[in-house]
Amino acid sequence: MTTADSSGAERSGDAPLLRCEGVSKSFGAVHALYKVDFEVRSGEVMALVGDNGAGKSTLIKGIVGIYPFDEGTTTFAGKRVKIHGPKDAAALGIEVVYQDLALADNLDVVGNMFLGREIVKLGVLDEVAMEHRAQQTLEGLKVTTLRSVRQTVAGLSGGQRQAVAVAKAVMWGDSKMIILDEPTAALGVAQTRQVLDLVGRLAHQGYAVVLISHNLHDIFEIADRITVLRLGQQVGVMNRRECTQQDVVHAITAGDMQFVPGMDEDTVAS
């Protein structure tokens, strides 16, 4: 819990924490994103849905600066920002948990959570401090299924690994926004449950959470709002309480495209 408290990730009413306006990204002739508006507030779970190739991953990569947008503006915490790479994003407090979690199987939970940012005292790893902080973070997230933070990650279940990856992302004092790319894609029922609970707690603790998922059932359980992308365009932002799964499915497959750029849909979709 300490992490969220000290992070200053307070709920800030209706002002979005992150706001992208009219962002576009092309790969050659392919408009992967075209004039997309996207926003997320502190303390909410914003789901990002769309068919394969709709541009979800591209939007995320643009936000964290892996593929900077070609045009459009990004505002973070009320200030215009230019994010040129994951380091910039991390400095602002944006952390991404990618689908292939990228954990080192042979290291234990503590080793993974601190990889590359080890606590060192006089050149020596401060294992005790790291273990202590890792436990606090996991406890703050109410991750109760781990037997010990000294287990190697190889021995963890998919849900536990996801929890470790999320804990790793939120442990850094100044993280305010967590992006999860299909966190439940490979999980069974019970583990999906654990991860969804964890996502809910993140929002409850004041983080802005972006959840990419193909599973509408999960989304309707946990999301506050839903942004729908279709063929690189944003075709709707819905309030979960005011729409049905049918509405979302319709938007995903046949949502109204606002723009018809200088090419036909086939090119856009290819």
Binding site: R41, L196, D197, A203, D224
Partner: peptide, 11 residues
Amino acid sequence: MSGDVESTPTP
């Protein structure tokens, strides 16, 4: 406040 998540009552 949009942050309420009914399905996961958090103490």
